[in-house]
Computed example of a mutant assay.
Amino acid sequence: MPLEIAPAAFDRLVEEALDSLPAEIAARVHNVVLLIEPQAPPEDPDLLGVYDGVALTERAANHAGDLPDRIVLFRDNLLAMCTTPEQLADEVRITVVHEIAHHFGIDDARLDELGYA
């Protein structure tokens, strides 16, 4: 049975995950918005999160004036895979780190090596 928590409590877990980032990493995340949606898109229903943007390693020198990159977490999928609040906190943090890594141009293969895939 999936874990159930209030949306505000889930938001706090996301905030805690962001606050746990090392300062040197957090300082380099610019023009990125983190959103929480209840469900993943129908075309990819198993997603926990997604990065939608241009990685820092792929940006042109004149990259400016664009809308913010987006990181979207899918609350229902994260809740469905967890049975305890501690497990949920871990999965939220792993997913946040995973998607921020994509912002820095780190691909899934490297994330898997690091334990974040």
Rank of each mutant, 00 (worst) to 15 (best):
P42N: 00
A64R: 15
I100H: 01
I36V: 15
T95S: 07
A101M: 04
G53L: 01
N31Q: 14
P45W: 09
D76C: 03
D69L: 00
V54E: 07
L13K: 11
E24Q: 13
A40V: 02
P22K: 09
V32R: 04
A117G: 14
N62W: 12
L35V: 02
A40D: 03
V33A: 13
Y51E: 00
D90I: 10
A6K: 14
H103W: 08
T84M: 08
G49F: 03
A80I: 00
P45D: 07
E58L: 07
P38I: 05
L35T: 01
P85Q: 10
N31A: 12
I100E: 00
I25Y: 02
I100R: 02
E58N: 13
T83L: 15
Y51L: 03
H103C: 00
A60T: 10
D90T: 14
A89S: 08
E86A: 09
P68C: 09
L47S: 11
E58T: 08
L111S: 01
N77L: 04
Y51W: 11
S20F: 10
T84A: 10
N77E: 04
E24V: 08
H30R: 12
I106F: 00
L79V: 06
P22Q: 10
E113M: 14
H63V: 08
G115P: 14
G49D: 04
A27D: 13
N31S: 14
V92H: 09
D11G: 08
E15A: 15
L114G: 07
D108V: 11
T83M: 13
N31I: 04
T83C: 10
L73I: 04
E113F: 09
A109P: 05
